[in-house]
């Protein structure tokens, strides 16, 4: 197809010329998504571990709830965050709507359930192996959680990456709460949506390829890290 050839050429050209607009958009995409992933990990790792090893009433219900939240459509999340941050909403005084902060909140809400649910799975598996040891040593609950999370660190890296993938590829939520404002809240995905709307399909595709390239690079780094961990039987 004509478009694909053009798009490849354009993507290469964009990358080689190190276009400042592109740099800004890519930079914001990474900043928003990485921040969201970090916050989501800070929340989701302990939450997932708690679901995996905790013994408290409502644990099953919480697990079901978190798993169900994984399927939350981004647009719904965007709408909820918009209603919260809107000047007519409860958090309007923060003046965060149409800012990167709003996009970070939306993405954090979106991926925390994913990270928590996947973490619960990973930690539950590991806990099956460690349980007798912890019992024997009378390890207090919070130390068990910390030890399980640390020992699952390479699996959790993959979990975080799954969250990052969803965050960086997401368009519906950030479009609503960020507004796709040029030089302020325009990220890769909203830029792609915009170029598509303008009929600039080649440029949109080229941006998509740049996004894929970034995802590829991050995955490659993770693979190497994981391979080293496997070598040392840390996975």
């Amino acid at each position: 197809m004509q478009d694909f050839g053009d798009a490849f050429a354009l993507a290469g050209q964009l990358l080689v010329s190190f276009d400042p607009d592109l740099r800004e958009i890519v930079g914001l995409s990474l900043r928003v998504s990485v921040t969201s992933v970090l916050i989501a990990c800070l929340l989701g790792f302990p939450l997932g571990a708690l679901i995996a090893v905790g013994r408290f009433p409502g644990r099953g219900l919480l697990h079901v709830f978190v798993s169900a939240m994984m399927g939350l459509p981004p647009v719904v999340v965007g709408l909820m965050v918009y209603l919260m941050l809107s000047n007519a909403g409860p958090l309007g005084s923060l003046q965060w709507l149409y800012s990167p902060a709003a996009m970070m909140i939306a993405q954090t809400v979106l991926i925390t359930p994913i990270i928590a649910a996947l973490t619960a799975q990973v930690v539950a598996d590991l806990n099956r192996e460690y349980h007798a040891l912890f019992q024997s040593l009378c390890v207090p609950a919070h130390r068990r959680v910390a030890a399980l999370l640390w020992d699952a660190r390479f699996s959790l890296l993959t979990v975080a990456l799954a969250g990052f993938g969803r965050a960086v590829a997401e368009v519906g939520a950030v479009m609503i709460v960020g507004g796709n404002i040029a030089n302020l809240t325009r990220v890769m995905t909203t830029a792609i949506a915009l170029e598509t709307a303008k009929g600039e399909l080649g440029l949109a595709l080229a941006l998509g390829m740049v996004l894929m390239l970034i995802a590829f690079a991050i995955n490659a780094v993770l693979m190497v890290t994981r391979a080293r961990a496997v070598e040392r039987a840390y996975v």
């Binding site: 809107s86 000047n87 007519a88 149409y98 507004g179 796709n180 404002i181 040029a182 302020l184 809240t185």
Partner: peptide
């Protein structure tokens, strides 16, 4: 000027919310 480009209906709705 930060431009939020949406349909007129949604733009009016957003403005009604003070956004």
């Amino acid at each position: 000027v930060h431009v939020v480009a949406v349909g007129t209906g949604q733009a009016i709705k957003n403005a009604q919310n003070g956004d």
